Simulated assay, not measured.
Amino acid sequence: MIDAINKGSKKDLVLFEKFKQTVLVKGKSFFDENINICSPENFLMFEEQYIKNYISAKNISFREKTALQTVGTTKSFKHLFVNYLWLYNYFFSSINNKYYKVSRTKKSKIEDVSFLLGYELDEKFFPEYGFANCGISYTQNKYEEVCVIHIFIKKLFENQDLISKEEELQKEIKSINVKNELEFYRGKEYKKAGIKAILLFLLFPDKYEPIVSYADKEMIVEEFLGEIGNDVDEDILTIRERENIITSFYTDELIHKWNKNKQLSRVIKNKLQLGMFYDSASAKLKEIIPYDEDYLGKIANDKCKNGLLAEELVFNTYYKEFINKKGVVLQPILQKLVDIKYIDFKDENYNELMKKSTKDICHFSKNI
C-alpha cells in the first residue's frame, strides 16, 4: 500500500526500518546503540513500574505519571520506555497534507521522549511527516496502547525467529490481548488497539493499510463488498485489487463513497435549510415540510433559524446511529470541531467536552 501514502511519509518508512533493525532485531536503544534495552530484567521492571504500579490519577499528565514511574530506575530501563513512547508517537501526522492535518508535531514527539531522559534528543531520530491522525481512541488510550507495544516487543525476544516469520508474526500481532497477557493490567478490554493496525502496516506495507481506525476499515469494506468477511484487512486488499485502487481511501474521490459521516455532512450542507430530518430507521435524510413561512408557522420557522433542527439532526445522526459503536460516537463531532479550529486538542474546551456525555457533545455542536 505504499502508493496510499504521501511521498513524505514514504521517507519516514526508512526511519522506521532503522528502528526495526536497531530495536526489534538487535534489542538496542534507537537513540544509543551501546545500550541494550530488550532484556528480561527490563521487561519485568516495566510490568512492575508501569502496569502493577499504575497511576490512575486524572489530575496529572501522562508525562508526569511516567516520570514518577521511572524514578530510581536504570538508564537502560528508561531507554526501553522512551523507545516504547517513540513507537507510540511515530504514526501521528506531523504536517498538514491533502489527507490529514497535524495531530502531533515533530517538536511534541521529541519533547515527549526526551522528557524522561532529561536531555533533548536529536531531531534526526523523529519522523518529519507522519501518517495519520490516529483518532481519539488511540490518543485517549495511551496506557493501553503502550501495553500492547510492550507485549509485542517482549514476544520478539522470547522468540527471536519471530521477526523473520511473516505469517506467524502477523497472527501474533492480531492476537495480542492485553487483558489476558498482563497479570496486573488494569485497563479496559482492548482487542482493537490502534498500534496493532500500525505495526501491521509498518512491517507489511504491501498487505495492510495506513489506517488506524477499525471503524473506518469496516465502513470501507461494507461500502465496497456489502459485508465484512473473516478478516477486514484481507477484505480491503481484495477491494484494492478488484477496484484497481492505488490511492489513499481518504482522497476526496473515495472518502465520500464509504464514510457515512462525510456523506451526511455534505448532504446536510445542501439540504438542511429545505426542512430535512435524519430518519435513523432508513438511515436517510427525509423531507418533512417545505421551508415556507406560512406552512411552518412562526414557531417552526424560529426553530430552523435558531439551529434547533440542526441540533436534532446531529443528535439523531451521531448518537442514535452510532451509539453501539464505542469510540465512533464522539470522534466525528470532536474531530470536526478541531478541523474547523473551533477547539484544539490542548484547549480547556476540548478537555471539558471529553468529560461530558455524548448527548451534551451533540447539543454543543449546534453552536458552531
Rank of each mutant, 00 (worst) to 15 (best):
I60F: 05
S175R: 12
E167F: 07
K26L: 10
S265C: 02
Y119R: 03
E312G: 14
F62M: 09
F62K: 08
T74H: 07
D235V: 07
E222L: 01
R186T: 13
N324A: 02
F315I: 04
E287S: 12
I110E: 06
N133E: 14
P290V: 10
A300K: 04
F157P: 07
K155T: 06
N316W: 00
N89R: 12
V148W: 06
N349A: 01
L87G: 12
G307S: 10
E348F: 01
F43D: 15
L116C: 07
K341C: 02
R63Q: 14
Q331S: 13
S282C: 10
I173C: 08
N349T: 04
E321G: 01
K207V: 00
I51F: 04
E227M: 02
K356Q: 08
K174M: 06
D216C: 01
C362H: 05
F19C: 02
E167G: 04
D112P: 00
S137D: 15
S365L: 03
V178S: 09
F62S: 12
K336I: 00
K124Q: 15
K262D: 11
F30R: 09
I176H: 14
C134H: 13
K305E: 07
E321H: 13
Y350W: 04
L182I: 14
L272N: 08
F62C: 04
E218N: 07
M219H: 06
Y342H: 08
S175N: 07
R266S: 14
G135K: 04
L237N: 12
K107D: 12
N349F: 07
P290H: 11
I51S: 12
T317K: 11
K26C: 08
K191H: 05
E120S: 00
Y318V: 07
E311D: 12
V338T: 05
D292H: 08
G275P: 00
R104P: 11
T105S: 15
D279H: 12
Y50T: 00
D347G: 04
M354L: 08
N53K: 14
K286P: 06
N42V: 10
Q263W: 05
M354K: 09
S114C: 02
Y319E: 13
Q160G: 10
F91T: 08
A193N: 02
R104F: 06
D12F: 03
I51N: 12
K28F: 03
F224C: 10
K303R: 14
W258G: 07
I198E: 08
Y119E: 13
A193D: 06
K154G: 13
D112W: 00
L121P: 05
K65G: 09
G275M: 03
K359M: 03
D3Y: 10
K341F: 02
S39T: 15
S265P: 00
K20N: 13
A215P: 00
K305Y: 03
V178W: 00
M45P: 02
I255W: 05
K98Y: 10
Y54S: 09
N97P: 04
K20I: 01
E166L: 05
V102M: 14
F249S: 09
N36I: 11
